[in-house]
């Protein structure tokens, strides 16, 4: 592979060298979080975390473990830099991001350190593209302080079923209300996990029962109703489309965590996570 013929001498200058036989394994995950231009890359010997935020209210993280990469060499314990995600995605898909079997773009991604560009070497069918993406001063990602110990309610669903729900949601509604309850608070339904919208043409409710085949796990401590801005949650559907399972959690403050399990082309598993703040004025709906 021409990429591996990069001279060793040059490699030594890099503090981070990673390579992937199939660039789609990275680009797909990044697409799932690409709702803003700026992405912070946090690299440790365990792997790569890419963070995107919007309005200080929503944060998406894509995790790519070190063993997903064919090569993952890091010379420092922690490397952080920020790049323009849209530009990076265009670079990763420079050869069209072909999905047909047998054709894949090989990637080698290198970084020399603070102030240097992120360098990508991409190769497909003997054609090599070199991209130098200028890095930016990384912004400190918000700590949503979402601890598993504070989780009040948690459900794990097949992404299939949530995809269906999201595709039918009334997008004229400004809010998406999520209700999770251990009991049966509603008269007609045995509603335990309920998505509601309040749009211009009326309200709509989408509910799941505990016994549904789509429900893998249901662990609710108390009834919780929270509203989230639809505009903030909408980008998460990109991750939903890619994923096979999704874990929906809320903590005692009403913060929402959506964890998506994504299986890549090679059958390996990666995660994408979304955090979202609840909308402040939670009124009791009578």
């Amino acid at each position: 592979m021409p990429l591996s013929t990069q001279s060793q001498g040059e490699d030594e200058q890099y503090i981070l060298v990673t390579s992937l036989d199939n660039a789609r394994n990275l680009s797909n995950l990044l697409k799932a979080i690409s709702f803003k231009d700026h992405a912070v890359f946090t690299t440790t010997p365990n792997g790569l975390k890419v963070t995107v935020e919007d309005c200080k209210c929503v944060q998406a993280n894509a995790f790519i473990q070190a063993d997903i990469f064919q090569e993952f060499t890091i010379k420092e314990d922690l490397i952080t830099f920020q790049v323009n995600l849209t530009v990076l995605l265009d670079c990763l898909n420079i050869f069209g991001g072909s999905t047909s079997a047998g054709i894949s773009t090989a990637l080698r991604m290198c970084y020399k350190g603070y102030g240097y560009p992120l360098t990508l070497f991409l190769e497909e069918g003997g054609v090599v593209t070199v991209c130098k993406i200028n890095t930016e001063e990384p912004e400190e990602p918000i700590d949503f302080d979402f601890c598993s110990s504070n989780v009040t309610n948690k459900v794990i669903l097949q992404s299939e079923s949530l995809k269906e729900a999201f595709s039918e949601l009334d997008l004229t509604s400004e809010m998406l209300q999520i209700t999770m309850s251990p009991s049966q608070p509603f008269i007609y339904h045995r509603c335990l996990f309920l998505l509601s919208t309040f749009g211009s043409s009326g309200s709509a409710h989408y509910d799941y029962s505990k016994d549904s085949d789509m429900m893998e796990l249901f662990r609710c401590k108390e009834t919780q109703t929270n509203r989230y801005k639809m505009s903030l949650l909408k980008p998460s559907t990109k991750a939903l489309t890619l994923s096979c399972k999704v874990s929906v959690r809320t903590d005692s403050r009403g913060f929402l965590s959506l964890q998506y399990l994504v299986r890549n082309d090679d059958g390996q598993i990666c995660f994408v996570e979304y955090f979202c703040c609840p909308d402040e004025e939670v009124e009791e709906d009578s």
């Binding site: 593209t129 130098k132 993406i133």
Partner: peptide, 8 residues
């Protein structure tokens, strides 16, 4: 300003 790309 953001990027340079060369395809060979």
């Amino acid at each position: 300003d953001l990027v340079s790309v060369t395809t060979h």
